[in-house]
């Protein structure tokens, strides 16, 4: 089965059965990842370009390895070293990559909606690797894969997502994806970092981190950007940690053995202390591995379109 859209712009647009399909495929890909030789011919003859307008290590390397494990030609473009720095528009850059035969363009961009603009103007399939505060769909897919792998299902699972919800594309993608798959989503953070209207999307909200975590099957921390304190959204990382950190006492309100997750990189001592980030229940490291598997599955399914 192939995906219905040429692009992967967000979890909001992705139908539940396609989420299922990607996760099922990712399970197979994970087995390949666990082998001695990880090379497969799935993407032989396909070209993938990663177009990154923001810094990233894990997402970019994850996509690159996913593509290369499956034998694709893979090129990376950074905005600060390319003609983007010379003032080329996103549409022109996209068309240039198109003309070079890119089958897939993976884009990360500080502006919400940039992948949607690109997708409208290129033949290549576009994968959103994070756009502004909007979406980071492959992160949500790897989170969902991890939850499903550990807990066996998504339906009925209670997921508490805690932190800077306002600026978080991870929170949005997970909200769309998890609710679509029947999970219960509780969003929590300081009131200044909670955007309006979340309840209308089927999420529960609170500013009380213990209430959020109560009886949760999964507790997910969101990264706090240190510059947020300069804009007066909270006084200090110290105060944030004191009231919103996922410390062992807070985690004790969750279901016994609840999964601890984080999209990374973790600000240790802020979103959670090391004792939680590295505890038995933490699946933060496995999330990274699963990210490669999920991206392999996505690249595979997207390049099968029209075959």
């Amino acid at each position: 089965m192939a995906l219905s859209s040429k692009d992967m712009l967000g979890m909001k647009e992705l139908p539940a059965h396609e989420i299922e399909e990607i996760l099922n495929n990712a399970a197979v890909m994970k087995q390949i990842l666990m082998q001695d030789s990880k090379k497969t011919p799935h993407l032989l003859g396909k070209s993938i370009v990663a177009l990154f307008y923001e810094n990233s290590t894990r997402t970019r390397v994850s996509f690159e390895l996913a593509g290369k494990y499956m034998s694709a030609a893979f090129a990376s473009v950074s905005a600060n070293t390319s003609s983007v720095a010379k003032g080329e528009t996103l549409i022109d850059t996209g068309k240039t990559l198109d003309m070079m035969g890119a089958d897939i363009i993976i884009i990360r961009h500080p502006c919400s909606g940039a992948p949607h603009l690109l997708a409208k103007h290129v033949e290549a399939g576009v994968i959103n690797a994070g756009d502004g505060m909007n979406e980071h769909p492959t992160q949500a897919l790897l989170d969902m894969f991890t939850i499903r792998e550990k807990l066996g299902a998504l339906k009925g699972v209670k997921v508490a997502i805690v932190g800077d919800v306002l600026h978080s594309r991870v929170a949005r993608s997970n909200l769309w994806g998890l609710t679509k798959m029947g999970a219960r989503v509780m969003l929590a953070g300081p009131a200044t970092l909670m955007p309006p209207g979340l309840n209308s999307f089927g999420a529960e909200t609170t500013t009380d981190v213990r209430e959020a975590v109560k009886n949760a099957d999964v507790v997910m921390g969101l990264r706090i950007q240190k510059e947020r304190q300069q804009s007066g959204l909270f006084p200090s990382l110290r105060e944030y940690a004191r009231y919103f950190s996922l410390n062992p006492e807070v985690i004790s309100h969750a279901k016994p053995g609840a999964l601890v997750m984080h999209p990374g990189p973790v600000n240790r001592g802020v979103e959670m202390p090391s004792s939680v980030a590295d505890c038995e229940q933490s699946v933060i490291r496995e999330q990274v591995t699963n990210g490669v598997a999920v991206r392999m599955a996505l690249l595979y399914l997207m390049t099968r379109r029209g075959n």
Binding site: K12, S112, G113, D131, G132, M133, N134, E135, R169, R172, P195, P196, G197, L198, S200, F201
Partner: peptide, 13 residues
């Protein structure tokens, strides 16, 4: 506009 739609689209309201 800051509201449900800006939250949904991840655009600054």
């Amino acid at each position: 506009n800051e509201g449900v739609v800006s939250t949904e689209l991840g655009l600054k309201g």
